[in-house]
Nucleic acid binder design. Sequence first.
RNA 1: GUGGGUAUAGCUCAGUUGGAAGAGCGCCAGAUUGUGGCUCUGGAGGUCGUGGGUUCGAUCCCCACUACUCACC
Length: 368
Amino acid sequence: MFKYEVLKVCKQSGARIAKLTTPHGIIETPVFMPVGTMASVKALSPEEVKEQGSQIILGNTYHLYLRPGHELIKKAGGLHKFMNWDRPILTDSGGFQVFSLSKMRKITDEGATFDSFIDGSKHLITPEKSMEIQQALGSDIMMAFDECTAPDCGYEKSKDAMERTLLWLERCFKVANVPTQMLFPIIQGNMYEDLRIESAKRTAPYAKCGIAVGGLSVGEPKPVMYKMLEAIRPYYPENMPRYLMGVGSADCIVEGVVRGIDMFDCVLPTRIARNGTAMTSKGDITIRNAAYKEDFGPVEEGCDCYTCRNYSRAYIRHLINVDEIFGGRLLSIHNIRFLHRLVNGIKQAIIEDRLLDFRDSFIEKYEK
RNA sequence: GUGGGUAUAGCUCAGUUGGAAGAGCGCCAGAUUGUGGCUCUGGAGGUCGUGGGUUCGAUCCCCACUACUCACC
């Protein structure tokens, strides 16, 4: 039911183009995956998400468990049917929320206890519970329940979290036995090369069709993240995609593919869109700035998205400034399309064995 | 016409028992990376209606003027 097939390897960088077959269709990698935490890519319809070229989206275990509840979604026929998305879905395990909601949690080997941000009620999420929820949601790719750490938490805490993530992984692995749902384990180890390498080695045996790198892009400098990716690169299991979790700025995606990554997800394009920022090949632009008040050109010259074909910077700036949701929708469409176009450019460079050249010229323009 | 009230940032208004002026909104800019985000952070902007008086010192007290506003005739 799951199959991974490499189509082309870039001679210059080692990056590859591949096909990952899932029960809900084929994903061609490298791929960027928009995030739809609450069973919706914020502000967009599934049709609009598809129109930008999205092949797969994310849903979130923790949020959907709290509301509307995984049992309800199961009753509705699964997350695909519930939200009217017929392409692949990847569900996060709730592990990241252990980290991002750290003010209201308690972690033990058994699992993580949260105070619900909705009503304050207490919830224990264990590896088994996370799998149960993800199975009820019916995602194509389930993520292992892991513990993510802050970049400044120190070696011992980082090591403990890495060990606990492995302990939890084994428990996830035992109950992840639905043939239509693949489990991706997650490499942790904070910003320590030795921990990262150890985590990669010990995580690899659990990876059957894909492996993820977690706990990066959590506030550390970009060069540190790149260093970690380089450290673990030799230890990935053979013949499966590698997913860098939570990464979605254009430069990090290019640098990630150069370092062997195939899959990315991020809230960044849709979040900054709603706050009035557009992604372009010359870097992010804050569209609500006065500089664009009378700029009647498209967000990005040459972009083929619905937004750029029909609307001006001045109009979008106006919408954002008067708090009209259509402005956030238009920028979300553009930003997602921008990242898919970026990945298309990366693929073309892989085909032509010139990804490192592509990276150099892209970064130069992007950072200018 | 008579009596009262108000005049402080672009707007709506606090405030100082007289000791070198504040908020919210707006404006300008920054942030945002497995979404607790119509969020968060920062900045610019005022000779406190005008003219006089009292005082060491007035946005504040007194007088006059002007504008706006309410009530009554």
